[in-house]
Design a protein around this nucleic acid. Sequence first.
RNA 1: GGGGAGUUUCCAGAGUGGCUAAAUGGGGUAGACUGUAAAUCUAUUGGCGACGCCUUCGGUGGUUCGAAUCCAUCACUCCCCA
Length: 375
Amino acid sequence: MNFELVAASNNSRARAGVLTTDHGKIETPIFMPVGTAGTVKGIHTRDIKDDIQAQIILGNTYHLYLRPGMDVIEKAGGLHKFNLWDRPLLTDSGGYQVFSLGDIRKLSEAGAKFQSHIDGSYHQFTPESVVDIQRTIGADIMMAFDECTPGGADYDYAKKSLELTQRWLDRCFAQFNKTGPKYGYNQSLFPIVQGSTFAGLRKIAAANVKTFDADGYAIGGLSVGEKEEVMYEMTELVTADLPENKPRYLMGVGTPVNILESIDRGIDMFDCAMPTRNGRNGMLFTSEGTINIRNKKWENDHSPIDVNGASFVDLYSKAYLRHLIISNEMLGAQIASQHNLAFYLWLVKTARRKIIEGSFSGWKNEMVPKFKQRL
RNA sequence: GGGGAGUUUCCAGAGUGGCUAAAUGGGGUAGACUGUAAAUCUAUUGGCGACGCCUUCGGUGGUUCGAAUCCAUCACUCCCCA
């Protein structure tokens, strides 16, 4: 894997780059649609590629391990073959599930013991097994197994949590170096910077992560309940310490505004469930601002979803989409998800162009108040 | 013609003397959602000069300290048998 910077903003830390993998190039900054269970919910692979123009999508270790299971994925020849996605793929390690599954998981030095949310059965993840699983899935970018420290954690908890993540990271890389890809193309392993909202811990985490000569570095444990200013502050702090010549991935972020602000602070990669999940639930991110399509005010608004037209679905009217969502028609969730993802990809693509043209900051300052609007 | 069941707040449907502006579901309205246990969850849904008052349980008239709940009567709906 190779990362090349092609442009940098002269009055901010924003950069544009190209990340090259065996499944193709990724132009950064990039947004990666979340495809937890081997599917970007509701969207055909064809539309993810041709309409949304995603360059890389996610899969999830925990979810794919439980269902369909590694036996099926391996026999399919990896997730790329299984879901017909032939561009780069990144898998999350299950670290987020360590956080989100809350009381049906137990942490220990060895790893995390989970109870399946599907049938209640017990499973153990270790840094080693999580690397093995991601080898089997065949992700171009695999993520280290970490504890996504819960928002609001106190210093002692955050410190212990970070130290556990760091010990797990050693084991992840040991396993990574001991094993090889299964399907003939290269895989990379990204470490994750934790440290909660404590500047000191974040600094320690960034320094530690740099001791591994990784192909890219992630920042995790943000957007978990802390104030946005704190998230930006932590992001800025960490990107200042990470190597310039490697991509930085801010995990789980965020809103369109979050993304622009984070690009401004030197982030290259993003993922978030928001465009799909919120889309299914009736929230649309548009070039004019955010709308709740279920609101009565759209009942007779026959104008296009978004005049920006990042996707063909934008031609459908707000009134029609409102009708579909309110009637619980499947197509409603699909259109909303597809629109939101296309908008997100348009957003990062435009940000990239502005960085290259040298006008990112001005453009960002113009866009942020627009995107903050509730229509 | 004979016998039976019923009429409750937007809808369906509980409730059969005070704890009932009235369960629950649907529908409506609004909100939430950030490495997806989420096509999910939450709030609200008679009126008002709102920690109180007023009007609601087919109509009318009673019984009672007190009625959606008991009695009488009228109206309408449905089912079964002729």
